[in-house]
Amino acid sequence: MMAFLKTAVPGFTTILFRKKRTRILVALALLPWVVVSIVKIVGGLSPSLSLTAAPLFSEFVMTFFVQFFIPLLAVLAGSSLIRDEVEEKTLSSLTCRPVSKGNLFLAKFLSSALFWWAVLLTAVTVSFLIAYFGDYSLFVVTKRFLPALAAALLAYLAYSSLFSFLSTFVPKTVILGIFFIFGWESVVQYFPGSTQKLTVAHYVKSLLPPAPMANSFLLVQLEPSSKLWSLTVLLGLSLLCLLLGAFLFSRKEYNA
């Protein structure tokens, strides 16, 4: 399996990187750099604006990533995992190779996940470095940056696993995904009680460090789950979706 992944992953990554859609999404991931840089420059020129690093990073950068960009990216990346091959009729080129379909599914997912993790890692890290310019204390790195980075990477894993699984049998996964992310998740995560726990966003936000501002948008977590439980749920959901996705993909026929 490892030898297969070693040969398959670079190929799938090249195919992914060559797509125009991928390059647009990479550019979008780097947008916070520009905004944070502008805000820092404006803040430096006008000290009366009192823009501190912590809210800038947690309110703007992480809100952008966790509430908007990562779910959107995961919907697009996850739903295109199998659908692109079916719609572009390239699936038969892959499935007539001496590799099980389940392994192909996992290799494709891993290529996509590694690529987008690298993009997210770079985007979040550089945004952090700009926002906290001149204040890279151990506290800031361990209590603000690392938990935020871990939440971002886990959010991508959980959402993209879910949509990759759905893409094996739902024809228009993007539409379903957009509805789920910007309909269901955006509303239900603010419901009190246990209903909010039916969203991925709830567990992702439970992993984020407490926001420094009292009325923080991201802090609207009425009853956050424990970090350990959130981690378990996100990893468990990802694993379950990937196994089910590989299973379904190997049994379903696609007339491509």
Binding site: T14, I15, R18, E88, K89, T90, L91, S92, S93, C96
Partner: peptide, 14 residues
């Protein structure tokens, strides 16, 4: 087995 399908299913970006 080598299979050449009728559809133009090629990775056109490669």
């Amino acid at each position: 087995i080598g299979y050449c399908p009728e559809a133009q299913g090629l990775y056109t970006d490669l």
